[in-house]
Design a protein around this nucleic acid. Structure first.
Lengths: 268, 268
DNA sequence: TATAAAGCCTTACGTAGCTGGAGGTGCAAG
DNA sequence: CTTGCACCTCCAGCTACGTAAGGCTTTATA
């Protein structure tokens, strides 16, 4: 191609940084259709096509799909639509960003845990990760049940405190898997439970404990199962009921009623 | 399904929040394959499958592809790989986030412009957007050419200042399209050019101007065309060369040599 | 001018992570 | 007995291209 301002696909691709295949594709879907040499069928791009392509790339950058762009390009006065859809795309990007932030925070926490704990049982690890990723859902659940105070208290916890609780939790899980099978009244078992509960209490702080204690738990009962589905325990069912029994024993003897995952109810 | 801890797809889907179709898909690709009723072929999910699914969802959340997850699930001790790949995924997320941040900043700027300017010629608008999105590439270009000082100066400009320059630029473009065709020596044309150059000078500040003036422009000449491709002007070629002529006239009479998009060279 | 190399054409399949529909079977209630 | 629901499998489609085969056209070199 010797002529000025006429480019073959290769040249055009080189000039714009868009791959040949992509240019073919844009031609195919009717997004950017250059002239074609009548006999050979070779595509002939012009300077105008550069400008058009820049529009396309810009709109893609703003978040539009190629289909949307095709429609936008055909409407001459589309600054109006632009204004509306830009806000929409902005919100979409915000959500996307939030998701990414959460994932990054989760990864950071997991890396920290792996560093400090060495190997971690995968069931436990995933229970934690699942907890992180459903933090939002848990918040919503709490807000729906007028537990905004509790939620707010939890949100204020620093990453450092969260890590500490994670570690306590891992410790608990390890010991559960070790002690599993021993009778509830075994002193080792009871000590393990006490240690864990104390750590939890410390994390939550007195205010939150008080708030929780004031709640009418019975009222929430039907929905607790729903929450259970959201935040799974890392234990097998057998381990879980063993742990519940041990906790029940502890509470009976300490007059303390609180259970992290709600009560196990016999299912019908 | 009456039995305890046995779920049909529908029930399982309900319980986990994962669509039936997706569960079918996970079965198909060998990611989560429940038992099947021998005669009817209906899938039978168990409590264990819930745990497995939670692992899957967690790994997805961390950025793994389904394929990677399949392989991970088959290896029993995969906390090792985890540690390595987590860092990798973290970096990927960082990049993704950066891209999103840029898009969001661009959208904000465009919305602001639309609000303040009303309707904007689309060619101009996209020239600006393109500029925003290639800011990084421009920075790289400058760094490669030992223009780090210039770049640093530009980076310090506030969003507010950028908007102001955008507006000046839009104004220029409007006037160019209005005045196009008039002779270079027309006082209106010369005034337009002077206004624009003064605004640019104000934006850049004296220090930057000095830095730019000290450069050996001739040395860079061959690469300027490359930069031109990155930052296109919003004008047609005719407008562009008309503008260049008018600028040249201005500079000749003002002893001022500076051209925003580099000199147009005759192409061979 | 002959031929080789580069560049171009179309066609078509592959990708990830699903979603949707068609057409058929199994099971319980009215 | 029929209605309806939940389930099955198989096939198609979505985005935005990447990759590759097999056959032209253009360009460069001998």
């Amino acid at each position: 191609m010797q002529e000025q301002n006429k480019y073959s696909v290769g040249e055009f691709s080189e000039k714009t940084g868009i791959s040949i295949r992509t240019l073919h594709y844009y031609d195919e879907i009717g997004l950017l259709q250059p002239e074609k040499h009548p006999s050979s069928g070779h595509r002939i791009y012009t300077h105008q096509d550069i400008l058009t392509l820049q529009k396309i790339i810009s709109l893609k950058f703003l978040g539009y799909s190629l289909n949307e762009i095709i429609h936008l390009m055909h409407e001459p006065r589309f600054t109006v639509d632009l204004n509306e859809t830009l806000t929409f795309h902005f919100q979409a990007l915000e959500k996307e960003k939030e998701r990414i932030d959460q994932s990054m925070a989760a990864i950071k926490r997991v890396i920290r845990l792996l560093e400090e704990e060495g190997e971690v049982d995968s069931a436990i690890l995933f229970s934690l990760i699942h907890g992180m990723q459903t933090e939002n859902i848990q918040k919503e659940w709490m807000e729906q049940h007028q537990l905004s105070d509790v939620m707010e208290g939890l949100s204020k916890k620093t990453e450092e405190e969260k890590i500490t609780l994670d570690q306590t939790f891992i410790q608990l899980a390890k010991e559960v898997k070790q002690l599993y099978g021993k009778p509830a009244e075994d002193p080792e078992v009871q000590e393990m439970i006490q240690t864990y509960l104390e750590a939890s209490l410390e994390f939550l702080g007195e205010d939150l404990i008080q708030t929780l204690a004031d709640l009418n738990v019975a009222e929430l009962e039907p929905d607790i199962e729903e929450l259970e589905n959201i935040s799974p325990s890392p234990f097998t069912e057998a381990e879980q009921s063993w742990l519940n029994a041990a906790m029940e024993y502890y509470m009976k003897h300490q007059d303390f009623k609180w259970n992290f995952w709600g009560d196990e109810k016999p299912r019908s």
